[in-house]
Design a protein around this nucleic acid. Sequence first.
DNA 1: GAGCGGCGCGGTACCAAGTACCGTTAGGAC
DNA 2: GTCCTAACGGTACTTGGTACCGCGCCGCTC
Lengths: 227, 227
Amino acid sequence: MREDGTVSGIPVRERLVDAALDLFDERGYEQTTADDIADRAGVGRTTLFRHYRSKEDVIFPDHDRLVTAVRERLATSSADTALVAVTDAVRLVLLRYIEEGDRARRRYALTSRVAALRDREIASVARYQRLFREFIAEWMGPAPGAALRAELMAAAVVSAHNHVLRRWLRRDAADPAAELDAAMAQVVSLFTRPDEPAGGGSTVVVLRDLRDPEYVAATIRRALQQA
Amino acid sequence: MREDGTVSGIPVRERLVDAALDLFDERGYEQTTADDIADRAGVGRTTLFRHYRSKEDVIFPDHDRLVTAVRERLATSSADTALVAVTDAVRLVLLRYIEEGDRARRRYALTSRVAALRDREIASVARYQRLFREFIAEWMGPAPGAALRAELMAAAVVSAHNHVLRRWLRRDAADPAAELDAAMAQVVSLFTRPDEPAGGGSTVVVLRDLRDPEYVAATIRRALQQA
DNA sequence: GAGCGGCGCGGTACCAAGTACCGTTAGGAC
DNA sequence: GTCCTAACGGTACTTGGTACCGCGCCGCTC
């Protein structure tokens, strides 16, 4: 208990987020000033800007740390496991949003209504996309056309993420992690096809439905012998 | 000739753009105030905000009109010519940038340095992407998985555009229109393949380098047993 | 207990973007 | 000339964001 009357042991940062979300819902984003948020949280305006760089930042997750986590996950991968690393990394982001639960959904409602917040969210996503683009480009190597393929694939990766995330936010996805895996499998299958020079001698096999493993193995043998 | 000394018959909007670009180069974006820009253009600050919604807007193209042009181009298409319309529409955007010539390159240099301007550019691109997503989704119809495919394809379309545009901005593209056509052909070929539903129990295996077929077969067995 | 140093906080003052409003002036129609 | 419109400039205001200073609390040491 403090002498200013605020009884809660809730940290200042959390109180600010709650205050901001409540006020944005009540009056709208533009109609809410930084003073309003600070007042409701029971702190001074200075304190708000000490904890968050801007009024928008209050309701957004800590993208800096998440980007770092993604970068680190990508870094711990060899050429063999590159696509696994990408899938893991993008799942990292999705799970972080899901952990937020209701807060993520309230933010989604806001970003749907307020252009400034939507732009902000998009800019954040672009940072992830850039990370994936650089990683995939390095993985693909300097082959002709690889730069474009890397850019397309990175865009597809974050789009797959966004697609599943939005479905979860709208409560249309019962098992978002599984949906993300499926979406990522589709992305991977899109960009790793045997037709073109698919980079440096990669072998891609796509099989419809689950078949007898021995049949699969035989198919693989044939495919490899053709290559 | 006017009595305030400004001799030029150059329109106010153009003078403002030139003034802004010059000042951003000289002092940097943040170090340049709206007053500075207006002063150099020989107008009042009020006039600046009459012509442009914000300080950033001064150096960006009129995306509102371009978005409208893209929407109109997309609207005049049947199901048969949908992909042609998409290619035409995205070429429309590329050509508009190219028309700007040096101005587009100066803006590119700025967006590379200034985060606020980069975010702004990204937000603009997102609007085109949304347009393409909605158009492609409608074209693909309500088939299962179409929403995701539309999202992926829209992302690929704008990524292809951005890739070629950046190459032209860096003077790496001699014939940007041709490069865009090639990139768009690649995008279209990516998303119009006969194999299809990669979601319904398909198994995708990617192996880097050519290895012993028996090793590959063993890997496949393991993968299938996990599934 | 007395001193002390760091840390989180609040207050004030300031800057710059953007808005609202009002008065002025140039230029065309009649 | 007169009236009307449209574009411009100036002033004042709101608000996000920064810089700076001073205060109180806490734990530490002596």
